[in-house]
Nucleic acid binder design. Structure first.
Length: 402
DNA sequence: CCTCCACAGGAAGCGCAGGAGT
DNA sequence: ACTCCTGCGCTTCCTGTGGAGG
């Protein structure tokens, strides 16, 4: 028998596996009715012929910011084309378009699909965007996901806000999406007030909500009775405890289903979810680490190596503690590693910036030294199990040929 | 009490790449 | 095609901090 024929004939717990991948966009968004209503109310102004306020959306990863926004924009487009309202919506992931210029360029490529504006000056592209809106007397809604990654955000917001003065009929509105709560406070006061005319918060899902979401997905994606109720509960409980993140919850189910398939089981139980949990956690860590610059990976490597090799003894109590490291010794270890790998070694000052970065990603936890310690230092601890980080790191560094 | 230690983190500046202006 | 400009990653230098030790 052909090996592919064999693979196709293999029984599966999935009815439609695509529906439990993170890319799938459900047509029902439970527990986001409020946010949808608020967004709809603001954007509906465009249908009545006046410019909607700018909206700023924030919430942690996996709280449904992106899907909800896309969903509302889809509905808006659908309705607008039915009623011949002049509305253009653009969705931009700013991680891939991290400057004012690139955001505007992306808008242009949608407004003028037959033209290619790459290489034109920033001013020209801006004019093109404004004149399109002006000429068509339409309302442009620009949704900028991960807006905190835009370098010259103040300029972008200012330019788009100001453009509304030049446009007599129609207007440009911005929907900014961010998962960084602190980001809002770092903004220039003017930018902040114009971007945050309307604010929307997406709170993390609790265990009950996650359970309902998972149930809905299970019905769509899995065969009937292929997932035990308790397995769903467990997946929801794990995700709720760790982050309230719907994406990890869905990933848990997906991996659990795959594990069941591998074992040739027809039902997904708690056991598979438990196994999937390890896998998903590793995937998350691997993902996070692989996007880090090499130097930060080396700092992290220094921390993991030390935590694996060393006892951590609290000098005050003399007790065997969890692997707590001193900032100084980590720096020394990092220098050794970097030198031995023939990578350049950054200064201690910059190393401290790296430590901050790593902390914001949750990969490490730092605490200021208190009494019992000579002088001022920072204690560093890993945010995840050292062994897991170590295995991810060695995979990545190997792939990079280091 | 003063001084030293072991750092934290601000300020200034430097070399570089790539984009803008001419 | 050319210079000019600007942002980025980084270094150097410096001031601040709070306990330890004399």
């Amino acid at each position: 028998m052909n090996i592919f024929e064999e693979a196709l004939q293999k029984k599966s717990v999935f009815k439609n596996r695509d529906l439990v991948t993170p890319h799938y966009m459900p047509d029902k968004l439970p527990f986001r009715e409020n946010q949808i209503k608020q967004m709809t109310n603001v954007l509906a102004l465009a249908l009545k012929g006046s410019k909607p306020d700018n909206i700023f959306i924030y919430g942690r990863t996996g709280t449904g910011k992106t899907v909800t926004t896309k969903f509302v924009l889809n509905q808006l487009n659908e309705f607008a084309s039915k009623t011949n309202a002049k509305i253009v919506t653009t969705y931009i992931n700013c991680r891939n378009h991290p400057t004012k210029y690139k955001v505007l360029l992306k808008c242009c490529s949608q407004y003028y699909p037959e033209h290619n504006f790459i290489g034109y000056s920033a001013g020209f592209v801006y004019e093109k965007v404004v004149s399109y809106v002006e000429k068509n007397e339409c309302f442009a809604i620009i949704a900028s996901d991960e807006i905190d990654t835009v370098k010259d955000l103040d300029d972008l917001i200012y330019a788009l806000t100001r453009s509304n003065d030049e446009i007599s009929k129609g207007g440009i509105s911005i929907i900014g999406i961010s998962n960084n709560v602190l980001f809002k406070d770092r903004l220039d006061a003017r930018t902040k007030s114009s971007l945050c005319q309307q604010e929307l918060v997406f709170p993390p899902y609790n265990a009950y909500e996650l359970k309902e979401i998972l149930k809905q997905r299970v019905e769509l994606a899995f065969n009937e009775n292929a997932v035990q109720e308790s397995a769903i509960n467990l997946a929801a409980a794990i995700a709720a405890k760790e982050s309230g993140d719907a994406r990890t919850a869905v990933m848990l189910l997906l991996r659990a289903g795959e594990i069941a398939d591998q074992k040739g089981l027809s039902v997904v139980t708690d056991k598979e979810v438990e196994e999937a949990r390890k896998k998903v956690e590793e995937e998350i860590i691997l993902n996070m680490i692989s996007t880090l610059p090499i130097q930060e990976q080396l700092v992290l490597l220094a921390i993991t190596k030390l935590s694996l090799n060393k006892r951590g003894i609290n000098k005050l109590t003399g007790m065997q503690e969890e692997n707590v490291l001193y900032s100084g010794e980590v720096y020394e270890e990092y220098c050794r590693i970097a030198r031995s790998l023939k990578e350049n070694v950054v200064s201690a000052r910059w190393y401290r910036e790296y430590i901050h970065e790593l902390e914001t990603y949750g990969l490490i936890v730092t605490t200021a030294s208190g009494a019992g310690q000579r002088g001022q230092t920072t204690f560093i601890k890993l945010g995840y199990e050292a062994q897991k980080i170590y295995s991810s790191l060695s995979k990545i560094l190997q792939a990079e040929n280091i």
